[in-house]
């Protein structure tokens, strides 16, 4: 694995030797991954390569069988969703995990509603801060009191991102953010993700679309059969090379054989 050229920077999160199996299926087979602040790191790989399992472990939804997660100078065996959120890890899931029938502000503040008089939800403050946040992210919606079920895919994505930032997220994980999205909408969402990286967030993104990956990422990590097989700087590689690593055609014969017997 090539050590990255982010010298002088400390990784926001450091994963070491993460292993996870479901029954007899090995999903992750000793993955090492560092994610740096101010960078967009793309995680690519074929279906079943273990991308989703890896981000679920980072966000605390799944516990690894083996391995360590280091963060803020502390080492954890596993995280739980509340702990991950507290440590600043927010995930924008593929299904966005929005409560469709609730309005935009309620979704952005889900789980951290401000209170007044220690009992009443401070709706005015929620609306005001949601508007501010969405304006900063350049997400345009009709009103923060609209139920999210009436919004478009891009708008919903924007709201999910706003919620992540509102959870005081320092690292934001995106699972297939542009899946099932139109061209214009994808472009807007990608711009939003890129701008998060530029603002200093540690961004980890899973995508199948290499074109999107190349247009916004600083680093590309390739997962194959549960292993991190390559860690590129985006400017030092090209789509053909990445595809080669995704499919395994660039691998040495020995590793290739190993991989195919496993599959």
């Amino acid at each position: 694995m090539s050590k990255c050229c982010t010298l002088g920077k400390n990784p926001f999160i450091r994963l070491r030797n993460i292993k996870k199996s479901f029954g007899h299926v090995v999903a992750l087979d000793g993955v090492d991954l560092d994610v740096y602040p101010g960078e967009v790191t793309a995680l690519v790989g074929d279906n079943g390569a273990g991308k989703s399992t890896l981000i679920k472990i980072i966000s605390g939804v799944l516990y690894p069988d083996e391995g360590e997660i280091s963060l803020n100078g502390k080492t954890y065996r596993h995280l739980t969703p509340p702990v991950a959120i507290e440590l600043g890890i927010s995930t924008v899931y593929q299904d966005l995990a929005l409560v469709d029938c609730r309005d935009v502000a309620s979704n952005i503040f889900l789980g951290r509603e401000p209170l007044k008089a220690r009992f009443f939800v401070d709706k005015k403050r929620m609306n005001r801060e949601s508007e501010e946040l969405l304006r900063k992210l350049k997400v345009s919606i009709p009103s923060v009191t609209t139920p999210v079920e009436f919004l478009s895919g891009g708008q919903r994505q924007g709201i999910a991102v706003a919620r992540s930032i509102n959870q005081q997220g320092k690292m934001i994980i995106f699972d297939e953010p542009t899946a099932a999205m139109g061209v214009g909408e994808s472009a807007r969402v990608l711009k939003l993700i890129r701008s998060l990286g530029d603002e200093g967030f540690a961004v980890l993104i899973i995508s199948h679309n290499l074109h999107h990956v190349f247009s916004i990422s600083d680093r590309i990590c390739v997962l194959r059969n549960g292993r991190l097989v390559k860690d590129f700087r985006t400017e030092n590689t090209n789509p053909d090379q990445v595809v080669g690593f995704i499919t395994g055609s660039n691998q040495r014969t020995e590793e290739f054989r190993k991989g195919s017997t496993k599959a």
Binding site: S59, P81, A97, L110, G111
Partner: peptide
Amino acid sequence: LALGGNEEALRRSGV
């Protein structure tokens, strides 16, 4: 209401 709307979303929000 969030429980009724999307339980999983609430859980992932750390509630």
